[in-house]
Simulated assay, not measured.
Amino acid sequence: MKQSIILVVCLFALVQARPDVSHLVKSTPEPHVPANPYVFSYQAGRAPGHVDRQHTEVSDGSGVIRGAFSYVDPKNQVRTVQYVADENGFHPQLSHQLEDSAAVKAAKRKHFETYNRIAQEHASQTPGQVALAAAPHTSAAVAYATKKHLSAFERIAAEHAAIGAQQEAQRLALAAQSPHGEVEDGQYHP
């Protein structure tokens, strides 16, 4: 009892000691303040005297930012990205063209072959035929998984029905034994 009173007093003190932050919430938006011009640049490296990354950025205060950053990639090649950030977003320009690996080239080729085949099939069909052709077909694996799922669902539903019937029978038996038949939630209430 003593601990409960102390807890209530502490909670009350915390609620009363809560600082008023209403002055931090402003109902009127602040006017747009133009950005100040700035310039920054840095270079860094993993070893003394070795530069493997650098960044330079300039803003003239009009909201347009121009910059560039460079780094040494895992293949020991210097990669540079020049960019402009303005009211329309971030616009990077890479100084290098990334090459696809053999696996990526094969995947792209397969994707475009499949895409072109499907596009040709659909080009010769009316819209109604395209919808019918696009309907998925059930594979043997999907049919097996569906049958297994439905079988488990039916088994579980039957188990739940049996449990419900057993609980109802227990409730009725308990009600029959009570003098006034007042049984709620399986509990006798005199």
Rank of each mutant, 00 (worst) to 15 (best):
V142Y: 11
S27R: 06
V25G: 11
H91P: 00
Q97T: 13
A165Y: 01
G45L: 12
Q187F: 13
L94T: 02
H137G: 08
L132C: 05
V64Y: 09
A161M: 01
E154Y: 00
Q82T: 06
A106Q: 12
Y144E: 08
A140G: 14
I156F: 00
Q16A: 10
E182I: 06
V130E: 04
K105A: 15
L11I: 05
I156H: 00
Y42D: 07
S178M: 04
I5R: 01
L172R: 12
Q187L: 10
V9C: 04
S139R: 15
S4K: 00
Y42A: 07
N36I: 09
P48L: 07
A13G: 10
S151W: 00
G61Q: 08
P19A: 06
R66N: 08
P34I: 11
H180E: 12
R53T: 13
R109I: 11
V51F: 06
A143P: 00
A17R: 08
F40H: 13
A134G: 12
Q187C: 03
H160C: 02
Y83V: 15
H55R: 07
D73H: 12
K2R: 02
A131V: 08
N88F: 01
R155A: 04
E87V: 15
A140L: 14
Q43G: 09
Q125M: 10
E99R: 07
H32L: 03
K75G: 05
H55A: 12
A161T: 03
S59C: 15
A169H: 08
S4C: 00
H32R: 15
P19M: 05
H137M: 14
E57P: 14
H122A: 07
H91Q: 02
D52K: 13
A173R: 07
V21F: 11
V64A: 13
C10V: 13
V33P: 03
D52T: 09
